[in-house]
């Protein structure tokens, strides 16, 4: 028998949501209020720079072009390696040419999407992982004072994952013939923007 979402279910969900809204908010007026802000600060951080946004969406687009398993392996590899870069930044391990690396990530990932390149999975994972280190090193360490490192980290990773998700959603167009052209056009746009970022980084 098929399960249906009935009016009773909806009412139940609304009452749960209302009950949650009525929960006493703890510590709004106290110093710990930054703890919650840490999550949102981290989550919005990847969305705050166009270079970041384009590179991460490109990862999702490329994954969608490549299909399974790259579709989900690339968006797993990027945040993992990004946090390695962030960890290096936090520990004080220098990574030379971070801004150039970020710009090159947009250039190369845009090129991959434009050409609909199909390297072997380990090569595409290594490419994505390598550039993720630069993104993490540049942006993963920017925790505002008074906020929770843990919640910031989680927000940062989830925000990055959601950007990949946006890329994958757009990449669903790949199943249509006009969609493939649109995706390659998006790759060309990312490549062009990457060149612009590169020019900015070296001048």
């Amino acid at each position: 028998m098929a399960e249906k979402w009935t009016g009773a279910n909806l009412g139940f969900n609304i009452s749960i949501a209302t009950a949650l809204l009525l929960l006493p908010s703890l510590a709004w007026a106290h110093v710990e209020q930054g703890q919650a802000a840490g999550f949102f600060t981290g989550m919005e951080h990847p969305w705050s720079g166009l270079d970041h946004i384009l590179a991460m969406i490109a990862v999702g687009l490329w994954g969608a072009q490549l299909g399974s398993p790259a579709l989900w392996v690339l968006p797993i590899a990027f945040p993992m390696m990004m946090t390695v870069g962030a960890m290096m930044g936090l520990m004080g391990i220098p990574v030379p040419g971070v801004e150039v690396g970020i710009a090159l990530s947009a250039v190369l990932l845009g090129l991959m999407v434009l050409c609909e390149a199909r390297p072997k999975l380990p090569i595409s994972v290594m490419l994505v992982g390598f550039f993720a280190i630069f993104h993490g090193h540049a942006h993963g360490t920017e925790l505002p004072p008074g906020q929770s490192g843990l919640l910031y980290s989680m927000g940062f990773v989830i925000g990055t994952g959601l950007l990949h998700g946006v890329g994958i959603l757009i990449g669903l167009l790949h199943r249509f013939s006009f969609g493939r052209i649109v995706l390659r056009g998006a790759g060309a746009f990312i490549l062009g923007m990457g060149c612009f970022f590169f020019w900015q980084a070296v001048t």
Partner: peptide, 15 residues
């Protein structure tokens, strides 16, 4: 990934 970043926060600036 969050765990890795947390480890970075614990050892921040030590290297």
């Amino acid at each position: 990934a969050s765990g890795m970043l947390m480890i970075g926060w614990y050892f921040r600036g030590q290297l």
